[in-house]
C-alpha cells in the first residue's frame, strides 16, 4: 500500500507514491530522481544525506517521507542558479574542500543552512554547523575555510 505525497523540491512542486516507513533519502533518490542526495550510513550518524526542510538541516535517511508532505525541501541539485554556481560551491572548488566528493552535498547543505541564518559566521559557528557531517578525505580545515570564504564573498565566481 503506497501513499501519495506532495512537497516542494528546490522550489518546484513534486509528488511521489511512498511505502509506509519509506525514508526521505530513498524517496528523493528513487521516486523523485534527485541523485545529488547521498546515503552514507542510513542510520543518522554521518550527515552525508543532509537536506534542508523549511530551511533547517535534517538527516533525510531518518526522516519519514510522509512527514515532509506540504513542506519545502532544498538539496544540492537546487543550489545552482542557471550557469552560476552558489558562492558556497565556488568556494568549495577554490579551497579544495572536496576530494572524493561524497560528503560534499551534505556539507554544502549544512553550510547553506548556517549562512542563510547567519551571513557573518565565526569560525566556531562554522565548526558547529558542519559538526554533524563526516568527511574522511580532506579533513575539515579546507571545508571550514571555504564556508568562511563564501560568507566573506571572497569567492571568485560569485553568482
Amino acid at each position: 500500500m503506497k501513499t501519495p505525497i506532495q512537497f516542494q523540491l528546490n522550489g518546484e512542486d513534486v509528488a511521489a507514491f511512498v511505502e509506509g516507513g519509506a525514508n526521505l533519502l530513498d524517496t528523493l533518490r528513487e521516486a523523485v530522481g534527485d541523485l545529488s542526495v547521498k546515503g552514507g550510513c542510513w542510520q543518522g550518524t554521518c550527515g552525508t544525506c543532509t537536506v534542508l526542510i523549511d530551511g533547517s538541516p535534517r538527516l533525510s535517511c531518518i526522516t519519514l517521507a510522509e512527514s515532509v508532505a506540504g513542506r519545502s525541501i532544498e538539496t544540492t541539485a537546487g543550489l545552482r542558479r542557471g550557469a552560476d554556481l552558489h558562492p558556497l560551491q565556488s568556494a568549495f572548488m577554490e579551497r579544495f574542500a572536496a576530494q572524493c566528493g561524497y560528503c560534499t552535498p551534505g556539507m554544502l547543505m549544512a553550510a547553506k543552512a548556517l549562512l542563510d541564518k547567519n551571513p557573518n559566521p565565526t569560525r566556531e559557528n562554522v565548526v558547529e554547523a558542519i559538526g554533524g557531517n563526516i568527511c574522511r578525505c580532506t579533513g575539515y580545515e579546507p571545508i571550514i575555510n571555504a564556508v568562511l570564504d563564501a560568507a566573506r564573498g571572497d569567492s571568485r565566481h560569485r553568482a
Binding site: 541523485l35 547521498k38 546515503g39 541539485a77 545552482r80 554556481l85 572548488m93 572536496a98 566528493g101 561524497y102
Partner: peptide
C-alpha cells in the same frame, strides 16, 4: 583545478549507485 570538482560541488559526479 581538479577536473572532477565541478561534479562534486553540484552533486552530479556519477558514483556507482547513481545509475538507475
Amino acid at each position: 583545478q581538479r577536473q572532477d570538482m565541478l561534479g562534486h560541488v553540484t552533486g552530479t559526479s556519477p558514483y556507482y549507485d547513481d545509475h538507475r
